[in-house]
């Protein structure tokens, strides 16, 4: 059920931190969980797992292609490998291995891409992953996840491990607001209505979920009733929640820290085209960014609550 009360968005930890912490818990519960790293363990935060379980942690050096295929071998022998690196590197340098050695034979590898989007900040575009969801969703059989906060990330690390099949799990570098209470239930393939609304739906994943909640508050003051839906699973898409939003609100704005040419927006547009065509707007990355503060970059490249609200106004206007 959608929440009736207003959101108090308090700043939480980065999703990469929640990933690293949950991985340690998971390691204690399941001895088959192993981790492969390409010299970024302190950044992806799998270093905590390495300290706790050195015999189950494999440093591959800076060699992502080899790392992905080693993960496939570990999985083929019954292990549950979490293969982690910056999303920009593991998804591009490891893509051919993900295609032929993981996706095609449907091997149980969990790929974790941290430092996704442009909110990594000062390191600049070579480290910013804005194509990873296009690549991951292009692989048949892959489950693609992008949690919004520390609570949902902790849940999805466990869901990814329990799922039998390849998974891509997207994490961010920057601290993000906590969206969920501790009792929230999550499931792969299920979106979550966070706020109900009737004029337009704001649909998002990752850090754009909190921005969408803020946008809904801006719109409410203007008399526009916005529904907010978190889509932590990009693939397989929750077609029902999309069709329901299209039917009941007549307009959907998709917000994501990813190229608008791929990712959630095009998946939702495809689902809407097949179910209940409606007005759509897309908020996301359109080009390679630059160095800067995370906040400054999100503002300059148009991924804030104000951008979501502006897109919602356009969508509502187009309905008339």
């Amino acid at each position: 059920m959608a929440a009736k009360t207003k959101y108090e968005l308090k700043m939480g930890s980065a999703t990469r931190e929640a990933f690293g912490k949950t991985l340690v818990q998971l390691g204690k519960e399941n001895k088959d969980v192993v981790v492969c790293d390409a010299d970024l363990s302190k950044s992806t935060m799998v270093h905590w797992f390495a300290q706790e379980f050195p015999e189950r942690f494999f440093t591959c050096g800076i060699a992502e292609a080899n790392m992905v295929a080693i993960g496939a071998g570990l999985a083929s022998s019954g292990k549950i490998p979490f293969v982690a690196s910056f999303s920009a590197f593991v998804m591009t340098k490891g893509f051919e291995q993900l295609r032929v050695t993981v996706a095609y034979p449907n091997v149980n590898v969990k790929v974790v891409g941290t430092h996704s989007g442009i909110s990594i900040g000062e390191d600049g575009p070579s480290q910013m992953s804005i194509e990873d969801l296009s690549l991951a969703t292009a692989l048949p059989g892959f489950t693609v996840l992008s949690p919004a906060d520390e609570v949902s990330m902790a849940a999805f690390v466990r869901l990814a491990a329990a799922h039998n099949g390849p998974v891509f799990l997207r994490a961010g570098r920057a601290k993000v607001p906590v969206v969920y209470g501790p009792d929230q239930q999550f499931a792969i393939g299920k979106g979550i209505e966070l706020l109900d609304g009737s004029d337009v739906t704001l649909m998002a994943h990752g850090l754009m979920v909190a921005e969408s909640i803020r946008a809904a508050e801006i719109l409410e003051a203007e008399g526009i009733s916005a529904r907010v839906v978190d889509m932590p699973t990009i693939k397989p898409l929750d077609n029902e929640i999309v069709a329901k939003a299209a039917r009941e609100t007549g307009a959907i704005v998709v917000g994501e820290e990813h190229l608008v040419d791929g990712g959630l927006g095009v998946k939702v547009a495809q689902a809407v085209a097949l179910s209940h065509p409606c007005i759509m707007e897309f908020v996301g990355v359109t080009t390679y960014a630059e160095s800067g503060t995370p906040e400054g970059l999100l503002q300059k490249y148009g991924m804030t609550a104000a951008n979501m609200a502006a897109a919602a106004r356009r969508a509502v206007a187009r309905k008339k």
Binding site: F58, N66, I70, A75, S76
Partner: peptide
């Protein structure tokens, strides 16, 4: 060879 390595590590 990489896949074989993964199997060797698991064994």
């Amino acid at each position: 060879l990489s896949v074989a390595i993964g199997m060797g590590l698991a064994a």
